[in-house]
């Protein structure tokens, strides 16, 4: 990377950088220390002081509230959505790149048109459809629309990557008499593996953090996912501030672990669609 040009003393930038660090870190510090504070002490102690008696009882209370069930639901929904998205978008993107005719172009245009549309505005008909097909208050009610909403961005990214595969490679496999399916499976998919990881992370984060669909499409505690359970805790624990913030910490932990393990892929996933 040639960045010598930027290597200079920059007072304003430096100040802003350190200031922003405070803006980011102080609230997170507050969340963590408060979750470790005794329930009685939150009203008396300085909110930023180190707790006098560090206690994990708030975490215990969260887990006693079926939190593991909600974690399980969130994992099921996230994994199923990502698998479904990949299963439908890989062949579609492959077709769009490999088949050059009016129909495949039309299909691509239709899908990509969805990019600039605020789809959340359609929650009323989505609710109607989910109720009509009998999926209301099931995990499927979250999986299907969540997957549908990220099809445009996912297909667009995959198409961009598939187009970079040299056509000579496709031709070589054609000459060998490989079927389209085996070209897709043995050439296209391995070649765009980084893109698949990127879109999977992007899509997974969207589903894992999604709140609106669970709010309108599920009802019972059995089908509750983490974001909705946080909101429920907020209403139910009210004065148990350490408990509520412990739930927040637990909800972020899996993603934090992923961030620590694969920061590069995470960042690529977060900015999917903008940078390549």
């Amino acid at each position: 990377m040639i960045t010598i040009g930027h290597k200079r003393y920059n007072v304003i930038g430096g100040l802003l950088g350190w200031l922003w660090l405070l803006v980011v870190v102080v609230p997170i510090y507050y969340i963590v220390v408060t979750s470790l504070r005794d329930q009685m002490e939150i009203f008396n102690d300085n909110p930023l002081s180190i707790p006098r008696h560090v206690t994990f009882s708030a975490y215990q209370r969260v887990f006693q509230n079926d939190f593991l069930l909600y974690v399980r639901n969130s994992i099921i929904v996230t994994v199923a959505t990502v698998v479904l998205i990949l299963a439908v978008t890989i062949p579609a993107a492959y077709l769009i790149v490999r088949r050059v005719d009016a129909w495949s172009r039309r299909a691509y245009k239709l899908i990509v048109a969805g990019l600039a549309i605020p789809m959340q505005a359609t929650i009323v008909p989505i609710y109607y459809i989910i109720v009509k097909i009998g999926l209301y208050d099931t995990l499927w009610a979250l999986i299907l629309p969540s997957a549908a909403f990220v099809i445009p961005i996912t297909v667009m990214i995959l198409v961009n990557f598939l187009r970079d595969i040299p056509s000579s490679l496709f031709e070589a496999m054609e000459v060998d008499g490989a079927s389209e399916f085996s070209i897709m499976w043995r050439l296209a998919i391995p070649m765009v593996k980084p893109a698949l990881i990127t879109v999977s992370i992007y899509d997974a984060l969207n589903v894992w953090n999604g709140f609106l669909f669970p709010l309108i499409l599920t009802q019972s505690a059995n089908n509750r996912v983490i974001p909705l359970s946080l909101w429920q805790f907020q209403g139910q624990f009210t004065v148990d501030v350490p408990g509520i913030l412990a739930a927040v910490v637990i909800s972020v932990l899996p993603i934090l672990v992923a961030y620590v393990v694969g920061r590069r892929q995470m960042v690529a996933g977060l900015t999917a669609g903008f940078t390549k």
Binding site: W103, P125, L144
Partner: peptide, 25 residues
């Protein structure tokens, strides 16, 4: 090239939960 069937699952999912709701609203 691959048959149009490759795009059908994506189009169905997108149609039912994105295109139909857009008209539906």
């Amino acid at each position: 090239g691959p048959s149009m069937w490759y795009a059908v699952p994506a189009l169905v999912l997108f149609g039912v939960f994105a295109v139909v709701p857009l008209i539906g609203v």
